[in-house]
Design a binder for these strands. Structure first.
Lengths: 261, 261
DNA sequence: ATGCCTTTGTGAACGCGTGCACAAAGATGG
DNA sequence: CCATCTTTGTGCACGCGTTCACAAAGGCAT
């Protein structure tokens, strides 16, 4: 997950735990699929399996929304779809702007998952004048100069940043100044925003790095508990000599005492 | 965040808490930036600010790796970069394959963040025969038929799925059968994998939905505490069909409120 | 009606993650 | 060598999230 909100010390919004909110979209997706297959009701067990979670957790999650189930029967699919949608605020239309129409921005613009959930791409914005007017996903790319007017004219409160890291903070500042209060950030940077603005981060390379960690651990385990690292110095920093040279036994003795010195 | 691993009840791998592992890439990025600016040492306070976390948390995180720091001084940047890289397994080369070269897949292939961290795109794979051979990000797209041989020939253990939802599970199964043990899934589906295989999920629309929730809450608060819920009693099982039948515009426009039944 | 069977909703226990606050460690200057 | 000052490393307490396990609730058959 690349995730993480900014500020607000885990205050449970209106009584609904943050962790639960994060799972509601998951339930909603599973329920939508059931709805399309015209399934009338579903038990917590079935739905939990479909959503990939534990059934007890699901029931507790739903209990925060209210008592929407029938004992001995389960949950009414349509009704639950409506309740969760309403809770998530998807019954209203959310205009969003995407800033930075490179490969990723274009992919996001074309991503169908947005439109189908109450999100409407109000505009695509890019700093490159050469991009201006060029149609992407059926919308003409607008120049950054128009950012403020686009935001205010369309009442946009959610912005997506898909610019290079270097431009992200600046774009963020302008979005916020123009009235945006929620930002989805794809740029590999830590954005600083004023109180009251939510930022969620999606970082592709971080996800891969986390996978690499576990992958390495798996590889290390099977090969007879050998040092996790094949002691491959690489570039960088034998430096920090002191500690290293001392043969600093890492945390648990897995650090190859031999440092390239 | 779109995140979430599969199975393994939060076992802390090799003593390092999962939450800490998820933050290591963040620290690494901040440290790399410092390194490029030739900054020799950094205090926990400075680094924490740069990474967007609390300094106490950062120190505790580092304490799981070992005692790499000098009291009264701080941390040696180069040395820490090396230690974290090693811990994450980035000192070795990780060949990855990207399956599904649509908009998103192409964007991922072009994403520089991969190569710069020890990840090497070994191959791009797509099911569309028309795509075969077409160069994307400097690599020729290979057909799905070659999937298995590509995996084994290159010793790929990490796969990225960027296919439509419908194809994801099938692709996943083939990847796993061919030897992949870590999967980064961009398709909006819950993948089921055998024990021992890690799956991380990045879901764009879920992130937006979470933002919408908070956005709605913010809007509701300022407008005189109006209950988020229009006080809809909902006794036993009344509304139920009611909600839907009422012509309830499905939460999303894509769910036909009209139920065939 | 009555009893049985299924499934929800939740009280309670537990474990992980976070943040505080401080003692220990080392650098630095006299 | 000693005093002082900075910054790390961590013991501890607290709160959130997860899971178990079960009583209550409703459907259904008899």
């Amino acid at each position: 997950m690349a995730t993480g909100r900014t500020h607000r010390p885990a205050t449970r919004s209106r009584g609904i735990p943050e962790a639960t909110v994060a799972r509601l979209p998951l339930y909603l997706r599973a329920l939508t699929a059931l709805s399309e297959r015209s399934v009338p009701t579903v038990s917590s067990e079935e739905l939990a399996t479909a959503a990939g979670v534990n059934s007890a957790k699901l029931r507790k999650d739903f209990s925060y929304l209210g008592s929407y189930g029938t004992r001995g029967v389960g949950y009414d699919v349509e009704y639950l779809v409506y309740q969760i949608s309403r809770e998530l605020g998807l019954t209203q239309d959310w205009p969003v702007v995407i800033v930075g129409i490179g490969n990723l921005g274009a992919a996001l613009a074309n991503y169908g998952g947005f439109a189908s959930r109450g999100f409407r791409v109000a505009a695509l914005i890019d700093a490159d004048p050469a991009m201006a007017g060029k149609p992407v996903a059926g919308l003409p790319v607008r120049h950054t100069d128009e950012l403020e007017s686009i935001i205010t004219d369309n009442g946009v409160s959610i912005g997506v940043i898909a610019t290079p890291a270097g431009a992200a903070q600046q774009v963020c500042d302008r979005l916020v100044a123009a009235g945006v209060t929620s930002i989805l950030n794809f740029a590999p940077t830590v954005l600083s925003v004023p109180e009251g603005v939510d930022v969620r981060k999606v970082d592709l390379s971080i996800e891969l790095q986390i996978l690499a960690f576990h992958e390495q651990r798996k590889a290390g385990e099977e090969s007879g508990q050998t040092a996790t690292t094949p002691a491959q110095p690489r570039t960088g920093a034998p430096a920090r000599t002191a500690a290293a040279a001392v043969g600093r036994k890492g945390p648990e003795g897995d650090v190859p005492a031999v440092m390239p010195a």
